[in-house]
């Protein structure tokens, strides 16, 4: 199936994952980017409050979640690679591992959120935690949507793998990697910078 499809990625209209997905990615990055710039501007106005608030975050949770997402992204890339080779069983294995990585991320994020809520560090606590909750929750929504997309791909891969189009599969994979990209901006700026 997949080896018969030759996509000219060098064509400006056919980036890997599809042009529509890349337009979505740029819009998402700009949206998160603007919020992060405003966060940095607020931090400039109140540097001590931002620093003290940042120290209330658990850097280890953030770093472990980064490792979960990067490992999940690695599995996704392998899954696409094996699908292109027509090896459905390995593609399915790596896709399931990708989804597992997403669930591990959400589980640790839930623990982190529980810890914060328990001590009263909610969205209204101060400006820093306002940004923290808005940006990380918005990212969590993306991760959940990504898991749903991957679960649908996994269903097709399990039941009718021959009907799965590599372009569609790669679009779903690209969305999942976008969750990595957004987190790679959020983690250093929110957890480490201020």
């Amino acid at each position: 199936m997949a080896d018969t499809v030759k996509i000219d990625y060098k064509n400006i209209f056919y980036p890997p994952g599809g042009i529509l997905m890349w337009i979505v990615i740029y819009l998402e990055l700009v949206t998160f980017g603007i919020a992060l710039v405003f966060m940095a501007l607020n931090a400039r106005a109140e540097p001590e409050m931002f620093h003290e608030s940042r120290l209330l975050l658990n850097t280890a949770y953030g770093a472990i979640n980064t490792i979960f997402l990067l490992s999940s992204g690695w599995c996704m890339a392998q899954s696409v690679y094996f699908l292109k080779k027509g090896n459905f069983s390995k593609s399915k294995l790596f896709l399931n591992l990708t989804i597992l990585g997403g669930f591990l991320f959400l589980a640790l994020k839930s623990v982190e959120y529980y810890d914060k809520v328990e001590v009263g560090l909610t969205i209204g606590y101060n400006d820093f935690f306002g940004y923290y909750w808005m940006l990380t929750l918005f990212h969590v929504v993306h991760v959940i949507v990504g898991i749903v997309i991957l679960a649908l791909s996994a269903r097709t891969l399990r039941k009718k793998p021959e009907t799965l189009k590599i372009e569609d599969y790669q679009s779903g994979a690209t969305f999942w990697h976008m969750c990595d990209l957004i987190w790679l901006l959020l983690f250093p700026i929110i957890y480490l910078l201020f």
């Binding site: 990625y9 064509n11 400006i12 890997p16 890339a77 690209t174």
Partner: peptide, 8 residues
């Protein structure tokens, strides 16, 4: 991972 190196 996203193979952007292959893109335009």
């Amino acid at each position: 991972f996203m193979e952007l190196k292959k893109a335009n």
